[in-house]
Design a protein around this nucleic acid. Structure first.
Length: 805
DNA sequence: AGCACGCCGACT
DNA sequence: GTCGGCGTGCTC
């Protein structure tokens, strides 16, 4: 007899361990670790992952595995190891770690169905329940639960009239298409064509079409389209036994209608050659190194990636390329698809669940050798990895902000170590952590200082908006910006206007009493949405109508402040009525493919100005863009975030790189209320090195990364007294259990003190070496475990948080 | 997470 | 006396 250790899909502290099951006879040989199974767990059935098979078990009253969901393990032995490591590193449940590594389609859904035990049972049923079973004898528990108290249902279950059935449903469906196949030889077909009744014209059309084109099997949709017959005709042919129906599994290919222009390797310049040499040598010798490719925007990092990947693929190995979600634009995808064609799978959030599942299966079946994708693509189930590339390494989206709170960079290095292959981190503005490691030679530094086209970076003008205000310009556009925009318009060149919206959205304020409308459930002001005159909370989703008078003082002078893209567009139209503007933000890019459409419209020069938020900062490359304007450079400078200046510097550098990438020289205008800030000053001079020095000294004096590691503990509960007392207990416990080299801050209210009617307090540990910190934090969770499940208490722990929010 | 079990208050 | 509240503990 063989047994399996299974991690079940019940994310709770008490079940965060393996449970043993008997393996039924018929699966004993092929059930292996990494496969998904369905197992009985208490009264219900749940999905689980086999983590081990063995010949004996400590436990005696074992149940048997009820179903096996995979033919080949969906988690390779290596990924199982990664899962355990993730659990340790991020203090998450094992099941959460495993699920994070797979496409959402493979996560089970659960259903409870209430059934009548026999046809007669209905007569004995409680009056309230009878109507549900009038037509059918199976009803979804959800439907009943809303109208009937639980105990009444339970009573009838106890009486034996009803039965609860637990179902485990798979979300991931393989797409199948209907085909028809010829059920005879072509010679026989010729006979049948002669034999068929001559007024059955449609049938004849189909038969002759198949015969003349020598087609034995064809998708129904295609056949109907070319022959212009109806499905009924095919049905007749099927009933006559001339055709048979078949279903064939197909991949949903999000890029099927696109042609990719095949590209060849471009010659590398001197710098690129020097950068690629150590990478290629690591590839050839199967050496694990982490490279930081520090190259200015336009220095040709992507070409270095492409040629490194080529070497990896030529060695028969696979590669992963991570790209920030936001810059996974068609332009970016084209570059990889163009060079490697069908060897590429693409994974990003724009795909449907099914499409992601299909791309993932292409990887699993070894039908592709390269994955280009956002954060979670780091878990691509390759078994022969030859390289991992992380483009725009500094992007904060590589950190997952929910459990498991992992950083893709850490996973990349862990996997690359396992596979003994190189990791390449690329950025023009690396995070301080990464650059510091490169300085210490932990990572190998590769530098690209020149732009490929030898153009200098666009010149940057910083405009002091306070000056503008003083000289009477109260609009959101400086005189200089309007002048330059007009100039581009006349020259038929394009401009990009960037609105840094993060941390600064349009709130509603009364001009008479200063009252700001806040969310009733969260301590945050509501954001004004033009569409439907709604006020929305970005944290809990609360919506209300925009009031006509101030709720405090009844004044009519209530209006929205702040600069949304819509507002900018309106203002811009007033100042430059002749300009054609494309606005890109969440509102205009909501629909699938809208993003892409707007960009190609701009690329075709159907507009003069592209106006947008974060999403236009990266990866865009339009030859005729010669002006980039940053409307508000400093909005996120004042967020309670120790990375605020770093992010501002990165963003400004990034945005500036959008101008003058081709023949025409570019110009950048940065509007700001704090022109003296070093991140703005140094970004305008493209001086990363000086910024690095300056910021590092600040981080050192304030004990922030990379000098210290951080751990953030956030406590939330509907009652503030509870939150404070729990946080206080945690702080005391931490103080007793960490060395005095570490610093503990708190308890303090979180930057957003209340979200969704839950108060939030936090404390932060700053440490250099703290061998037992993970264990200490684990003890904290264990200690509050009962309260977390019964008392609505929540404790979240983020090891190396990106921000303090 | 679910669910059963079990121990106390307020009602037919 | 019983019904029904939710604290406690278990799930291979």
């Amino acid at each position: 007899m063989k047994y399996a250790s299974v991690i079940v899909d019940v994310p709770a502290m008490q079940t965060d361990r393996s449970f043993d099951y008997k393996i039924p006879e018929e699966w004993q040989d092929f059930l292996t670790p990494g496969m998904r199974v369905i197992v009985p767990f208490g009264p219900r059935k749940v999905q689980g992952f086999v983590v081990e098979t063995k010949n004996s078990s400590e436990f005696d009253r074992l149940k048997a595995i009820s179903e096996c969901l995979d033919l080949t393990p969906c988690l390779t032995p290596e990924l199982l190891k990664v899962g355990h490591w993730l659990t340790e590193k991020t203090l998450c449940f094992k099941i959460s770690a495993f699920q994070a590594m797979l496409p959402a389609a493979m996560k089970a859904k659960y259903e409870k169905i209430v059934t009548l035990t026999s046809d007669q049972s209905i007569e004995h049923l409680s009056d309230q329940l009878q109507p549900f079973f009038n037509k059918k004898n199976q009803v979804d528990m959800k439907e009943i639960e809303q109208d009937v108290p639980l105990r009444i249902i339970q009573k009838d279950i106890k009486n034996g009239y009803l039965e609860l059935i637990y179902k485990v449903k798979q979300k991931g469906k393989k797409k199948k298409i209907r085909m028809v196949k010829l059920n005879c030889s072509f010679d026989q077909l010729a006979e049948k064509i002669k034999a068929v009744n001559s007024n059955a014209k449609k049938q004849l059309t189909v038969m002759t079409y198949l015969k003349e084109n020598g087609i034995r099997i064809i998708p129904v949709a295609d056949l109907l389209a070319v022959t212009n017959v109806s499905d009924a005709t095919l049905k007749t042919l099927i009933s006559k036994g001339i055709l048979v129906e078949e279903y064939k599994e197909v991949y949903r290919d999000p890029y099927q209608d696109r042609l990719f222009e095949k590209t060849k390797a471009l010659p590398l310049n001197n710098e690129q050659q020097q950068a690629i040499a150590p990478i290629l040598s690591a590839v050839e010798n199967d050496e694990h190194h982490v490279f930081l490719m520090y190259g200015v925007t336009g220095s040709g990092k992507t070409e270095v990636y492409l040629q490194s990947i080529e070497a990896v693929l030529n060695n028969g190995k696979e590669a992963i390329v991570l790209v920030p979600e936001i810059s996974l634009t068609p332009q970016m995808v084209n570059r990889f698809k163009g060079r490697f064609g069908s060897k590429v799978a693409v994974l990003h959030s724009g795909l449907s669940t099914g499409e992601k599942y299909d791309e993932w299966r292409k990887i699993q079946r070894k039908e592709v050798q390269l994955v280009v994708g956002a954060r979670s693509a780091i878990f691509a189930p390759f078994e022969n990895l030859g390289m991992i590339i992380i483009d725009e390494e500094h992007e904060s989206s590589y950190k997952q902000e929910e459990n498991p709170r992992y950083h893709a960079r850490d996973v990349a290095i862990y996997r690359a170590e396992f596979h003994q292959c190189p990791v390449v981190l690329g950025s023009a503005t690396p995070t301080l952590e990464t650059f510091a490691r490169a300085q210490k030679d932990v990572y190998k530094l590769l530098t690209l200082k020149e732009r490929v086209n030898k153009r200098s970076m666009p010149s940057v003008d910083i405009i002091d908006m306070r000056e503008e205000l003083r000289s009477g310009n109260r609009s959101m556009f400086s005189t200089a910006l309007i002048e330059k925009l007009t100039d581009r318009l006349e020259k038929n060149e394009q401009s990009v206007l960037f609105l840094n919206k993060r941390g600064y959205s349009s709130f509603v304020m009364c001009r008479d009493c200063g009252f700001v409308i806040q969310c009733p459930h969260c301590d945050i002001s509501l954001t004004y949405h033009r569409f439907g005159q709604q006020l929305k909370c970005h944290y809990c989703g609360h919506e209300e109508h925009m009031p006509n008078v101030c709720p405090e003082c009844q004044s009519e002078h209530i209006r929205f402040f702040g600069t949304g893209t819509q507002r900018v567009e309106e203002e811009l139209v007033k100042v430059m009525p002749e300009a054609r503007i494309i606005r890109m933000d969440v509102d205009t890019t909501g629909r699938k493919g809208a993003h892409e459409k707007l960009l190609s419209k701009f690329g075709n020069k159907e507009a003069d100005i592209l106006l947008g938020t974060q999403m236009i900062a990266k990866g865009l490359d339009f030859p005729d863009v010669t002006l980039v304007g940053v409307l508000t450079a400093d909005t996120m400078l004042h967020l309670p975030d120790f990375r605020a200046t770093e992010k501002t510097f990165q963003l400004l550098t990034q945005v500036s790189g959008r101008a003058g990438r081709h023949e025409l020289p570019g110009e950048v205008i940065i509007q700001t209320y704090t022109p003296e800030n070093y991140s703005i000053q140094l970004a305008s001079k493209y001086d990363y090195d000086a910024f690095y020095e300056h910021e590092m000294s600040l981080r050192k004096s304030h004990a922030y990364p990379p000098y210290y590691f951080l751990a953030l503990v956030t406590v939330s509960h509907p009652e503030i007294t509870k939150v404070v007392s729990v946080t206080d207990k945690i702080v005391q416990f931490l103080r007793r259990n960490v060395s005095n080299e570490s610093k503990i801050l708190g308890p303090v209210a979180s930057p957003i003190p209340r979200i969704n009617d839950r108060y939030r307090y936090q404390c932060m540990v700053k440490y250099k070496r703290e061998k037992n910190l993970h264990e200490t934090l684990r003890k904290i969770i264990e200690h509050f475990q009962q309260e977390m499940s019964s008392n609505d208490l929540m404790i979240t722990i983020d090891l190396s948080p990106n921000t303090m929010m």
